Computed example of a mutant assay.
Amino acid sequence: MDINPYLDIILRCIGVYLFMVLAIRFFGKKELSQLSTTDLVFIVLISNSVQNSMVGSNSSLSGGLVAASVLFCLNYLMKLIMYHSSSVKELIEGKPVILVYHGKIDIAHLHQESISMDELEEAIREHGIDSYKNVKLAILEVDGNISVIAGEPDKLRPPQNKHRRKNKNLANKN
């Protein structure tokens, strides 16, 4: 059974696109925002290696345009689906991860996201803060960037449960 060459390109593009989305998700969001020279070379080589698997032996202009059109449509469709479904968005992009909360580092999250102390400290300094102890909140965003919010050192204690405190005060009055 011979398959239409353009349908073949469409199916190949869908397969490669889904593979690349899952591979990027699997290898971590940290890699997205911090492209080194080796990362750039990697991306160029990956795109070159999957190009032939998308168009097969069809190296015509129309074959390339079909492949590009399919990729644009898939990307648009994926963004539309993620816009309407928070669970799909979370599956594809992940969730932000808290790295520092009120001057305390979450070591488990650093290990989970493969972020070294040096990388965290560098991100904190890039935000003009000299120490993690002066950080109210540092979050690894879904795009791989680390957002940092400064806090006043004497106000960095985590907020207390005010409802609970009121109940204690009521108990003391009785």
Results as ranks from 00 to 15, higher is better:
24 I>K: 15
73 C>G: 12
20 M>P: 04
50 V>M: 00
165 R>S: 09
31 E>I: 15
132 Y>A: 02
50 V>N: 05
120 L>D: 03
104 K>E: 11
89 K>I: 06
74 L>F: 09
80 L>G: 15
113 E>A: 11
21 V>S: 02
52 N>E: 07
1 M>T: 14
73 C>D: 08
76 Y>S: 12
19 F>N: 04
79 K>M: 13
9 I>Q: 02
144 G>I: 03
37 T>K: 09
50 V>Y: 04
152 E>R: 00
114 S>N: 14
36 S>G: 10
109 H>L: 07
16 V>N: 06
150 A>R: 03
37 T>F: 10
36 S>V: 13
61 L>T: 08
63 G>H: 12
172 N>G: 10
14 I>Y: 02
5 P>C: 04
38 T>M: 13
61 L>A: 03
66 V>S: 03
44 V>Q: 06
78 M>W: 14
172 N>V: 11
115 I>R: 00
140 L>H: 02
36 S>A: 10
165 R>C: 06
36 S>P: 05
23 A>K: 07
130 D>L: 09
107 I>P: 02
87 S>F: 08
20 M>L: 10
34 Q>K: 12
61 L>K: 05
62 S>A: 08
137 L>Y: 05
32 L>M: 10
134 N>P: 07
141 E>D: 08
11 L>P: 00
33 S>F: 15
126 E>D: 14
81 I>C: 06
72 F>R: 04
57 S>F: 02
141 E>M: 09
95 K>I: 12
6 Y>M: 05
105 I>N: 08
74 L>I: 09
127 H>P: 04
131 S>G: 08
65 L>M: 12
107 I>W: 12
7 L>G: 05
100 V>K: 03
62 S>H: 14
52 N>V: 14
38 T>F: 13
133 K>D: 04
66 V>P: 05
135 V>F: 03
62 S>I: 05
123 A>V: 03
167 N>T: 15
44 V>S: 01
136 K>D: 01
16 V>C: 04
104 K>Y: 00
144 G>K: 08
43 I>N: 08
5 P>F: 03
102 H>T: 01
